[in-house]
Simulated scan of single mutants.
Amino acid sequence: MTPAGPEDGGRELRNSADPSFDRWLELLANRDRRLVLSTLIENGDDRLPVGVLTDVIARKRPEDVTPQSVLIELHHVHLPKLHRADAIEYDPDESLVTYRGHDGLERCLRAVRDAAAD
């Protein structure tokens, strides 16, 4: 963290060179991963079936996207990427996903959602 100058209202600034910050931004660059994380965070500590995440994403995507194509992307791309980043626990055999809980990731997710809403 870098101390803020008077022009920044006295707030601390996040060092954008922080490797975990860069990792979170990379994960959050994809809308489907943001939806997965938001859904898991809202769900709390419970494990969610991949089918629930598929339905959430399919409802938010254009009409020409099928739940099957969303499921394939989740299974082969997004869930493994989130798992490798230690953001989730993913059991492909049971088709269950659990959010691990990361304050930094949640702060970044809120900032990205706020920026997208503007």
Rank of each mutant, 00 (worst) to 15 (best):
G9D: 03
H102G: 06
L37D: 01
T54A: 03
E12M: 02
L53S: 08
I41N: 02
P67W: 08
T98C: 02
P92M: 04
F21A: 11
E63S: 13
V50L: 14
D114V: 09
R59G: 07
A29L: 08
D45L: 06
V77C: 14
K81R: 15
V112Q: 06
Y99C: 05
H75C: 13
H78R: 11
S20C: 01
E73F: 09
L82I: 15
M1A: 02
G10W: 01
L28W: 06
G10M: 03
E94C: 00
D8E: 10
G104C: 04
E42Y: 02
P3G: 00
D22N: 05
R100L: 11
M1Q: 01
G104Q: 03
A111G: 00
P19K: 05
L13F: 04
D114C: 06
G101E: 09
A117Q: 07
D46E: 12
P92H: 03
P3Y: 04
A4S: 04
D32S: 11
S69H: 10
D93Q: 10
R11C: 04
D18A: 11
D45K: 07
E89H: 12
L27M: 14
E63C: 03
R59Y: 04
V56A: 10
D93M: 02
S95N: 09
Y99S: 07
H83P: 01
L105C: 05
A115L: 11
S95W: 02
L79F: 10
D64G: 04
D93E: 11
E94M: 04
L105I: 07
L48F: 04
E26D: 13
E42K: 10
L53Q: 05
T2V: 10
D91A: 05
G104I: 05
S38E: 10
K81I: 12
P62W: 08
H83V: 08
T66H: 06
E7A: 11
L109H: 08
H78W: 13
C108L: 06
N30K: 05
R110A: 14
D93Y: 07
D45S: 10
Y99D: 05
L82K: 14
G5S: 12
